[in-house]
Design a protein around this nucleic acid. Structure first.
Lengths: 348, 348
DNA sequence: CTTAGCACTCGGGGCATGGGAGTGCTAATT
DNA sequence: AATTAGCACTCCCATGCCCCGAGTGCTAAG
């Protein structure tokens, strides 16, 4: 008859914690269910397998471990991982080399936001060896700062849109007959003074409301121009994916259909967005397996962090991998990268 | 004792051709080795399996078919596919709907080249159901047309680079102290008049030769500016990949390691470049299995077509899939898409 | 409380077996 | 001479079986 265990107290028991932590570390490293003998031999526990066996049985009863089948070792449950992440794992100190690599990435001449986002996705994917998603600030939430016109040819101009978050989009535009670049430049200047500071989302709405009629300028041109303004926020590439193929390195994804599930998830903007409700304002946060409320990637974990621009939280980094993820390392990397990224974006 | 067959003549034999064509069609559709019985029953041949068997044995001896093992049906050899592509397959007429879908994609307001390339990759990947790569014209081969400066803030400007092929890149630049936007604009104008028409590759070289010294303007700014010009061609994203996940739908890629081989190939610019030596100037070309001289994707086929800009061949479309590819359909789609794309890029 | 001992469970690898698909040859048919 | 029926043969592969080993859970002794 099993001992009766009062849940929270017993896990606090030092040895149980050590067993759980060690088991999870081992399982993260090997992807094989861990047995009592392995645990006792491989790590210096100073107790016999039988003792460990008892502890493991308790941990299972408490819901921290599971049994794929009778004669296999144990694997962590979602609850087990959660406990590990919240209480057990020692924060990992990044190697100075690694920190230097991160800093070096951002130690560059002035670049545009999109460049930083790309580099970040690439960097984190490479360093963690998991697929990584970086979300750019949604253009809808940005405010118009500046609309400029560059004459390129008599009948062609380039529009340069700049927002308060420093995002720049440009777009070539053919001029309707009878207008030259100067007219357009004047219109743009007028437009800028009128609407500087307005949310792009709001402008978008107003366009649909027929803003162009009220402006009195050349009707057709404004239609095009405002049409573009209205489209720009939707067209902007918000999700940047790095190292998608990393997923193929993990044995839990030896099955092609699982690979498809995860990769389609990562390529679907709406899917990624659905995770954003959980985004942490500060620090790093993990969603483990069933904590993600989407069926398609229930056997994955997601680790997220935010970054700031103009001292406001605007974007997100996400690392996606098997539940058996190297949380320690990923936490450390995301912490450092999100800090450094925020720093460079805030020109500090 | 097998009959002696003079190679080229005998394949011309009508029935052998029909057997070969039908077998390949069936294999393309099913991915299963095709046996004589299946062939005779499923398609109205009017002869018995035994006869087909003889034909198949001949075709194998001639090198057009292979035998995975004694008791399996036949599959086409690379030579067989080649013969099929060159002589056997009837060109497929695209459905009017499909043609309309292609046209509609390009029936848009003025856009930049990069937009067309993205759309094309997406469109072809969706229509063929294979991964698709679109190559942009290499910036090295473009000529400087225009360098413009837009003042954004007192100490920040946006540079807009335009080439003869209409490619636009822009870049934010922080001004060194003591310079204002007007100075820079003047410099840029000067630069444009001096170097309009020069190959970017050449400019790149000259930069390395210390061009900035000769220009006499503010030394530091030119360094930055020219540094950017020198980098731009290398940074430009030349390879656009669409529908990478399509590869997962084909049973020959049920094995994750094969998926990895193909997808890493597609993500490696240098690898893609190595195929370019075979790019056709006109029309559509297939490389089948061993005809691709790279080991990593020997069990794939690549179908390519070029597109024109300014009436010069500058870029390439590639569809990548298993050797058992739907050549008919892919040929038809690539033909139409490359024509329509060239048309829209040439403003016709 | 810990541990040795031991019976028990279960998944998976190895091996034999049989069925089925397909071939290739021969001989008969047209 | 070409076609086809017949048939023996080959070989893959799914199935079932057995056995091994890893791991457990219980009991009883230290």
């Amino acid at each position: 008859m099993p001992r009766v265990l009062s849940p929270e107290v017993s896990v606090v028991d030092g040895r149980k914690q050590k067993v759980l932590a060690t088991l999870i570390d081992d399982y993260i490293a090997t992807a094989e269910p861990v047995g009592s003998r392995t645990l006792a031999r491989k790590y210096a526990f100073g107790v016999s397998p039988a003792t460990i066996r008892n502890e493991m049985a308790d941990l299972e009863e408490l819901g921290y471990l599971e049994h794929p089948h009778t004669s296999a070792g144990r694997i962590p449950s979602d609850k087990g991982y959660r406990y590990y992440v919240d209480r057990l794992m020692r924060p990992s100190a990044l190697d100075p080399d690694v920190i230097e690599q991160i800093r070096a990435t951002y130690r560059v001449r002035v670049r545009e936001l999109q460049w930083f986002i790309h580099q970040t996705a690439r960097l984190v994917a490479e360093m963690t060896a998991y697929p990584t998603v970086v979300l750019a600030p949604p253009l809808h939430e940005a405010r118009l700062w500046d609309l400029r016109v560059v004459a390129i040819e008599p009948e062609t101009v380039v529009l340069v849109l700049r927002t308060d978050t420093g995002i720049i989009q440009n777009r070539t535009l053919a001029l309707p007959e009878g207008l030259d670049a100067k007219d357009v430049a004047a219109m743009a200047a007028d437009f800028t003074t009128r609407f500087r500071g307005t949310l792009l989302a709001e402008l978008q709405e107003r366009v649909l409301d027929g803003l162009s009629h009220q402006l009195g300028h050349s009707w057709r041109l404004w239609e095009e121009l405002l049409g573009w303004l209205a489209e720009a926020p939707d067209e902007a590439e918000r999700v940047t994916l790095g190292g998608a193929l990393n997923i193929l390195n993990y044995p839990e994804f030896r099955d092609v259909s699982k690979v498809r599930r995860v990769l389609s998830f990562l390529e679907t903007e709406a899917a990624i967005d659905s995770l954003l409700t959980r985004r942490p304002e500060h620090g790093v946060l993990a969603l483990i397996g069933s904590e993600i409320d989407r069926e398609d990637i229930q056997d994955c974990s997601v680790v997220m962090a935010s970054y700031e621009l103009g001292h406001k939280v605007v974007g997100t980094l996400m690392v996606v991998g098997p539940k058996r993820m190297e949380y320690r390392r990923v936490y450390a990397i995301l912490e450092t990268v999100s800090e450094e990224l925020s720093r460079v974006l805030n020109w500090a």
